[in-house]
Amino acid sequence: MKTIPIKLILLFSLLVLIYSCEKDDNLIIKEGYLKTVALADAKSFLRQSQDEKNSTPEGNFITSISDEINYEDLTNTDEELAVIDVKTKYKNLQSKVVLLNINNELQSVVVGLNPFEHSTETSFSGEMLITSINGNIIKAFEIEDNVFVAEYINNNTVHKNHEPNKNKNSVNETAKNCWCGMSNCNWCGELDEVIITSGGSPSPPSPYVSIAHMYPTGGGGGLPNEWDFGGGGGHNG
């Protein structure tokens, strides 16, 4: 019976150790991809946003900012979103600034909701508008009974000048007056495509939205991370 040289044993052990370290490093990178925004950083962001709003009160997309910061759960992770109530130039929307640290960068969006009359606390029907802090539209959704039924995407291309239907007589803008189906015709000029999704099932008990719809997640992989935007059960920061 041949004996294995001690050098080969040591070399094999070294290779196993290197492989294990690389595997652990990849795991750490994957787990650290999403991080809760620290309270101090969230407050700093809040102060900066207030200063910018006050410097140009007439031209800002955000018109009012709450001084309260809530932390709300994400699915499939222990990390949380920092959520701040705001008001924007779209006065009919229920809007929130949502903060998350992705790949060591603080990411922020404004999520605005326009509930329809038949919407309830456990079954949301309405519109969702996702924009940058400056009001640039990222995308929009139509939701019926917690199911996303239409998705409107901004592809950052040259937008066509879509006009509302002139044959419709209405004092207020309605979905029937806009080519894109949204209740505000101004949004249609920002959006290029419409993707209608079929099927799917409601998300109990309140609707959830994937963070991939809100932020440039860069294909972090793993199980989907979603925010219960109808919940509001987070704790204050």
Score class of each variant (00 low, 15 high):
residue 165 N to S: 07
residue 64 S to Q: 14
residue 142 E to R: 09
residue 68 E to M: 07
residue 83 V to M: 11
residue 96 K to L: 04
residue 123 S to G: 06
residue 104 N to W: 09
residue 158 V to F: 00
residue 146 N to T: 05
residue 112 G to N: 06
residue 134 N to W: 00
residue 94 Q to G: 07
residue 114 N to P: 00
residue 126 G to K: 08
residue 115 P to S: 12
residue 138 I to T: 04
residue 160 K to S: 10
residue 80 E to M: 15
residue 144 E to Q: 04
residue 159 H to G: 00
residue 80 E to R: 15
residue 127 E to G: 04
residue 68 E to P: 03
residue 169 N to Q: 03
residue 77 T to Q: 13
residue 125 S to K: 04
residue 167 N to I: 01
residue 79 E to T: 11
residue 76 N to M: 09
residue 72 E to Q: 15
residue 168 K to A: 00
residue 95 S to R: 07
residue 100 L to P: 06
residue 171 V to A: 05
residue 80 E to V: 14
residue 165 N to D: 14
residue 94 Q to L: 13
residue 135 G to R: 00
residue 168 K to L: 11
residue 103 N to Y: 11
residue 93 L to T: 03
residue 92 N to Q: 13
residue 101 N to R: 14
residue 118 H to S: 13
residue 85 D to I: 09
residue 132 S to H: 09
residue 156 N to C: 01
residue 93 L to Q: 10
residue 128 M to S: 12
residue 162 H to W: 02
residue 165 N to Y: 07
residue 89 K to F: 04
residue 79 E to G: 03
residue 66 S to A: 13
residue 141 F to A: 03
residue 75 T to S: 14
residue 153 I to G: 00
residue 147 V to N: 01
residue 156 N to T: 07
residue 70 N to W: 15
residue 76 N to G: 06
residue 130 I to M: 09
residue 135 G to Q: 03
residue 130 I to E: 09
residue 90 Y to C: 04
residue 102 I to C: 03
residue 134 N to Q: 11
residue 148 F to V: 09
residue 140 A to C: 11
residue 73 D to L: 15
residue 129 L to I: 14
residue 102 I to G: 05
residue 136 N to G: 02
residue 172 N to G: 00
residue 110 V to P: 01
residue 91 K to R: 14
residue 151 E to A: 02
residue 96 K to W: 05
residue 133 I to C: 00
residue 137 I to T: 11
residue 76 N to I: 06
residue 96 K to N: 08
residue 74 L to F: 12
residue 118 H to F: 13
residue 99 L to Q: 07
residue 128 M to K: 03
residue 131 T to D: 03
residue 75 T to P: 11
residue 152 Y to V: 00
residue 87 K to T: 10
residue 125 S to F: 05
residue 164 P to K: 01
residue 103 N to M: 05
residue 103 N to D: 15
residue 97 V to F: 03
residue 71 Y to C: 10
residue 117 E to C: 01
residue 139 K to W: 05
residue 70 N to H: 13
residue 109 V to N: 04
